[in-house]
Design a protein around this nucleic acid. Structure first.
Lengths: 106, 106
DNA sequence: ACTTTCTGTAAGCGATAACTTACGGTAAGT
DNA sequence: ACTTACCGTAAGTTATCGCTTACAGAAAGT
């Protein structure tokens, strides 16, 4: 749910591959695992992590389970980075000013 | 340098604490480590990871070394998430449409 | 009812990551 | 020249993570 879990989930390359496969739309587990170099249970475990992080939603459809990217989860992380971006720019500008005035540090 | 390294670096809670301490401006290593519950060498190791990921810049100043957030590095990650956000929204809208038409999956 | 399909979970193993202490090295002050 | 302050790196340990195989369960078809 929190952006902390989301960024931890997206830190894994394999999970980003899974996310990439869901960019076009929802897919069942088997279809996601097809062509991947890891076992299907491994994919299931990754899907669990992504779901717990609020990045995916699940909708059962018969025996299949459709996974889809949850926009809200992505937005959480996006806002964190936007905030960090703003602060970084402000600090950068301030440091440039201070250096022009001759101050080096605190 | 790449957003992959950046997201892996920011996945660690301790490294996010370090980033938070640099939001107001550049700081030397000792000042960053003060008040933290891990040793100073541990902080140094984290700073190395963040630097390698392109999230920090280093400017030697006497015996001290000033670390600062690199806006470019943050922006890399920001763009990745903006892209993912766009795709997620489009896929979400398409899935809602498809469901309205009665299609369940592929 | 039985089989098939699709999926989640448990147990166990190997690799990696984060931490510690100890050491080395550079810049400034006396 | 010597000391002090500040910092990075090496070596070693412990915990966590990602993977595999094996098993269990639910839904649909025959």
């Amino acid at each position: 749910m929190s952006y902390e879990d989301a960024i931890a989930a997206l830190a894994d390359p394999t999970r980003r591959v899974i996310i990439d496969r869901l960019r076009r739309g929802p897919l069942p587990v088997g279809h996601i695992a097809d062509g991947m170099q890891i076992s299907r249970p491994a994919v299931s475990q990754h899907l669990r992590v992504l779901s717990d992080a609020g990045l995916l939603t699940v909708t059962p459809s018969g025996t299949k389970r459709l996974y889809a990217i949850a926009p809200d989860g992505v937005d959480n992380l996006r806002r964190y980075l936007d905030n960090l971006w703003d602060d970084a720019l402000a600090a950068f500008a301030r440091a440039a000013e201070d250096q022009a005035k001759g101050k080096s540090d605190e």
